[in-house]
């Protein structure tokens, strides 16, 4: 457990020393989402209708942007080797890295989402639900993304392959996440979507670190 906390602390400190990396992701999210109201114009009804989908797609792409740096720097300087050699279970340390990735990319997206939702004239309860879906959904994105990042580690052109690999896997999260907000806007019950999203997260928490660990071990051989 100590090793897990120390990995999280180290990655957070590293993100603080390399602020640019985390800020790029945030700015990308902000710019992409704010381009849509500017491009479409002040049609409140249309904006409200497309808001959940756009915010979710932007969050998805922003998370993707940070995935390339999840394991690659640690692979390049040998830290990953030392983690694999640590007496602590490798999977636990990988989990630490995924948690740190969420704290530096996913959580800021969640915090920004309600403000960006205002650009689309979303009502207060929809804003709240949108933030909630992203709060459940972004850890899921980090977990699934970690599998892709581990599988493409050390490959040439890994960045493109990573998107091709991970984006299809993000589809269920997108459908249930954006679907929950859309359902609520048209007056339906959103709890079904939320439960499914949470179930996906529960599943990913168990299996994604394990799968990522296996892929990393293969990359290290």
């Amino acid at each position: 457990m100590n090793a897990l906390l120390s990995v999280i602390r180290r990655d957070l400190l590293l993100a603080l020393r390399r602020k640019g990396d985390a800020l790029t992701v945030l700015f990308f999210f902000v710019i992409v989402t704010s381009l849509f109201p500017l491009g479409i114009g002040p049609e409140a009804n249309l904006l409200r209708k497309i808001a959940p989908g756009i915010l979710w797609v932007a969050a998805l792409l922003a998370t993707m942007l940070g995935l390339g740096r999840l394991f690659a720097p640690d692979h390049a300087d040998g830290t990953l080797e030392q983690m694999a050699l640590s007496p602590s279970p490798f999977g636990l340390l990988v989990m630490g890295k995924i948690i740190a990735h969420w704290l530096t990319t996913g959580m800021p997206l969640v915090a920004l989402a309600p403000f960006l939702g205002l650009l689309f004239d979303l009502p207060a309860d929809a804003l709240f639900l949108l933030t909630l879906t992203l709060l459940i959904g972004t850890p899921l994105l980090s977990l699934i993304g970690a599998i892709g990042a581990a599988l493409t580690l050390g490959l040439r052109g890994g960045g493109v392959l990573l998107s091709l690999l991970v984006l299809p896997l993000y589809v269920p999260a997108l459908i249930f996440g954006a679907g929950a907000v859309e359902a609520q806007i048209v007056g339906l019950d959103a709890s079904g979507h939320l439960s499914l999203l949470a179930a996906l997260l529960a599943l990913a928490v168990f299996f994604a670190p394990w799968a990522a660990t296996v892929a990393l071990r293969i990359a290290l051989e």
């Binding site: 120390s6 590293l14 020393r17 390049a76 300087d77 040998g78 830290t79 080797e81 640590s86 007496p87």
Partner: peptide
């Protein structure tokens, strides 16, 4: 737990000081 392996790259993070690197390595080694 009984071995230490120091390879080419060395797992030294450029952004951290030698002290931080050493302390983190000790955490990993438990």
């Amino acid at each position: 737990a009984q071995l230490i392996f120091l390879g080419h790259h060395g797992a030294v993070k450029e952004e951290f000081s030698p002290l931080e690197n050493l302390l983190f390595a000790a955490h990993l080694d438990e």
